[in-house]
Design a protein around this nucleic acid. Sequence first.
RNA 1: GGGGACGUAGUUCAGUUGGUUAGAACGCUGCCCUGUCACGGCAGAGGCCGCGGGUUCGAGUCCCGUCGUCCCCGCCA
Length: 615
Amino acid sequence: MLDFLGDLRRTHMCGVLRAADAGKKAVLMGWVNRRRDHGNLLFIDLRDRTGVTQIVFNTDRNRAIHEKAEGLRNEYVIAVIGTVKLRDANTINPNMPTGEVELVADELRILNESKLPPFLPSDTALTNEETRLKYRYIDLRREVMQFNIETRHKVAKAIRDYLSGEGFFEIETPFMTRSTPEGARDYLVPSRVQPGTFYALPQSPQMFKQILMISGFDKYFQIVRCFRDEDLRADRQPEFTQIDLEMSYPQPERVWEVVEGFLTAAFAAAGYDIKTPFPRMDYDEGIRLYGIDKPDLRLPPFTDVRECFSSENLQELAINPNLPVIAIHIPKVGELSRKERDDIKPMFHSKGGARVYEDFKRIGNKYPAAAEAIGKNVGAEAGDLIVLVAGSAQAGPQSPVSPHRKVTPQELAVYTSAGLLRLALAQKYAERHQCFQKGDFRFLWVTNFPMFEWDESERQWMAAHHPFTSPHEQDMKLLEEGVEALHDPLSPLSAVRALAYDVVLNGTELGSGSIRIHRQDVQSRIFRALGMTEEEAKARFGFFLEALEYGTPPHGGIALGLDRIVMILAGAESLREVIPFPKTARAVDLMVDAPTPVSEAQLRELGIAIRKTRE
RNA sequence: GGGGACGUAGUUCAGUUGGUUAGAACGCUGCCCUGUCACGGCAGAGGCCGCGGGUUCGAGUCCCGUCGUCCCCGCCA
């Protein structure tokens, strides 16, 4: 028999009662977290989002209530009216915040029962994720999940408060908008009113926020859902939340100050102090020192040890002398077993003919002088792991090349291969090197990205970012020259730097932004550099190009992934731990079971027919 | 699109070289217990070994396929 709530009012949350509350009347409501039945004495741990309080039912005190309480089971929802009692010294539980007190029940209302759940929020072993996601409402009752979602709330609030204080307006932009086939695939929404046409869900409010600058709002932000129809990863969901902002008349440094400001507030809200300003690094330097555009600064950078080998050595090892020879250095890994050394090889994914020399000991046996010099250059101590990555003699340039850009594509291949291996090794031996400590936050601004990337399959230069990213003011001349050499891999386009920047934390890209193009003449030069005719540009971005012509102030901004920030703050390995209702690797919501087919009638109304594909 | 890992009770896992009736812990049910807090004791229920096919005298175990979850590459600001 269930009881009604009636006009009963909760006086305290379950996690707040302390010794000072002793003697008070209290009304608690929550879930039965655990029950310990001692016959005539029954303990219930009552749980809500704030914590747990022990309730005592005692036949001596009240036989009827005790009898009623015996019917309680895990996850029943109850209200208890009782008296807060200081526990006897020998029954204090120092492991819980409410452990000095307990609530002696005078009245019990059973507000709801629960079927036996597939797993319990109080379980110590973690249930498999499939079951957790199907019964997400039970999973979310777990203390960790409650903490993660609370952290998410606090972080978002801190950011809102900070940006509001800095004069930013939070302005909403449409979810049903226009498909601009650029970057990722769009999620499409069919229009019923105009059959055969589609809205797209925004990959980011990019053009809207720029138009808000043209509209005179000066400083805009939004904590906004974005959508991308691409394959998922542990750190990638099809819908995700961005802290999106844009401001008028900024230098990159102005944007960075704002970001450093709200991140300081956000991390403080989660209980962490961070130091600003963040260090800055050129994209080229990131590649050369870490083999990646989002360096994890918690582990040592690369050392180019080409000079440690004689040219005969390099020849014997079949190493290309015109490419860097990279020493990856992971501290304190200790002596590797034969199997561990063998395991390194499959971790290596070669780009452009890069090769791995995982057995440094063998190199030391064969080339003792080189090995000693390498150890010295790297600054390695006994027990540190050194792995070499170099360009194969057969691949890459046969003579030194020096085009405009500081890192050549061949070098990039070697650096990138080494960068991926460095991360894989760092991950694998995390327990040994102990460089990944909770609360160690190494922020970094990566700047001066290349404006264009060479696309080998198209054999032409492509925009590395969206085409509204402004080139560096000093590189305008290269841009002009480069326009004429779109299909030349050595084009001056390779050296054009973008006024783009990423904010990176511990090897995770938190956000990405740029100063935008505000001048029509620069914009059309960029389109030409991308091989786009005026007509093509107009067909794709006409409304936006037109807006640019009505007095656009210089402007720029950035967008940061809220989910990733919270994930790092929560110490989680996956975004799914900080998103209340996430999707699986195949983009399925296991709880609501979406996506689903829709009825023939719905399709007809939309003028859509499903084409069956058969093998 | 490609590569890899996993799938056994409600949950977490074990299951030897292919060999009787597939085990443990937690959870669940019943009984006992007045100071536990991962309470304890006794008894009990609970299995399409993901699904389909094959090899074999015999398959949880070997093979093929398929479905699902996870991780990575490709893809993706």
